[in-house]
Amino acid sequence: MSATATTQYSSYRNKVARSRATSEPVWIRYLLTTIALTFLTLFLFVPLAAVFTEALRKGFDTYITALVDPDALSAIKLTFIAALIAVPLNLVFGVAAAWAITKFEFKGKSILITLIDLPFAVSPVIAGLIYVLIFGIQGWFGSALVDNDIKVIFAIPGIVLATIFVTFPFVARELIPLMQAQGKDEEEAGLVLGASGWQILWRITLPNVKWGLLYGVILTNARAMGEFGAVSVVSGHIRGMTNTLPLHVEILYNEYNYAAAFAVASLLALLALVTLALKTFIEWQVARNAIQHESA
């Protein structure tokens, strides 16, 4: 019985493959492939290769010197600090927001969803200026901050704040569709069987969304380390103190120090490559899990 079904299916597949609707003339196939590949080469591979060749043009020693320069090291450190603070906070916020939106009904839900998207919608420059307006010494809390000797903008807290602002939608945006698709049946079943709220979160909700969550975290991290506009406004550009990696690249470039600029830029490019690799890995995992689910 099942053998006949399989043969029937494969002969049907062959028919589809040979039908005119799915097989374009050869030249169209080649044309489309060429266009896609040319685009990829022009806009992806060439710039990426350019970054690395420029970085290494004056030799490997210059490359290393540029990276161990005290200002570069401090930029790397600051970038990591900003990411280390911004990513966990956004992780917690993203899970909480996605949980609230997908599992409960409440008034103002659509407003919350819109607000989460706000950082995508506003220009990063505005994100930076908001903090200058609030925390600058001419701003709302300016005199209070000065009196207590607290520095927010043109110092690390401002950079962290700006980074959190531009990266906060990523985790929630990844999780909301996923959790909506999964529905709340499993959680309800857990509740009926007597699980507490925390048990439901740790044993049902989070395991269900773990890959989406991880993907959101990776995107958040990539953006947190690469953010330029918002951070540029609140940084003050003090070298060795408030420069992140992207800002350091700009400074080096403006000082005609092209080899060093590209060396530092290559770090950011590496970060992008690692992000891509992790993303591919996660997608592969998700696909594998889906297949296992279906066969089970």
Binding site: I137, K151, I153, I238
Partner: peptide
Amino acid sequence: RAIIDGLD
């Protein structure tokens, strides 16, 4: 502008 806004 940055100094006025608090770049010390």
